[in-house]
């Protein structure tokens, strides 16, 4: 958790977001929010599925006959595009209720996990899954898988909790 003062310092930014024409437009419609949220969930399902498949492969539980790097290459473009859709739809949802998000503990939790998950995914996770077969100690594969799943599920957990708390 970042300190409260970090988020507090962003208050003017949240206020500005809350007042954008896009945020206002979505907030003033009954159907935009559910529609955008549905696309957010579609992309999220595809992304989670792809990440879970890669992690199960890292654990050596599925699809063992082909190298991890091959699977990673197969899924990489899909993961990238789904991240784009998730971020675009997520930003729209955020703009429509930025002040609610500002006051929401789960939102802060989600953002910490989201930025960590993205950073981890496009650096360490990428290196480990692209490494040549046998060049990576299985322990690193396991550690990478556990960390990746923890970070992404943290994002999902925080996201769901925004609607409840």
């Amino acid at each position: 958790m970042p300190s409260l003062s970090f988020f507090d310092a962003l208050l003017p930014f949240f206020k500005w977001c809350d007042d954008t024409w896009l945020g206002n437009g979505i907030r003033n419609s009954r159907i935009y929010f559910p529609i955008i949220e549905t696309f957010h969930l579609f992309a999220l399902t595809l992304l989670f599925g792809a990440v879970v498949i890669l992690n199960l492969r890292l654990f050596g539980l599925i699809l063992r006959r082909q190298p991890i790097s091959q699977l990673a290459l197969d899924l990489a473009p899909w993961i990238r595009w789904n991240v784009v859709v998730i971020l675009a739809s997520g930003i729209m949802l955020f703009l429509s209720e930025a002040m609610k998000c500002y006051a929401s503990e789960p939102f802060r939790f989600k953002m910490v996990f989201l930025f960590s998950a993205l950073l981890f995914h496009f650096t360490i996770f990428r290196w480990v899954t692209r490494a040549g077969e046998g060049r990576m100690n299985p322990i690193w594969n396991w550690a990478t898988g556990v960390l990746s799943l923890t970070l992404w599920f943290g994002v999902g957990l925080g996201g769901r909790a925004i609607g409840f708390l």
Binding site: L44, F48, G49, V52, L157, R160
Partner: peptide
């Protein structure tokens, strides 16, 4: 939350 997370894993894998 369990329902949604299980869905993202179950359907998420099935779609592939």
């Amino acid at each position: 939350t369990t329902h949604v997370l299980a869905l993202s894993v179950s359907v998420g894998l099935l779609v592939w």
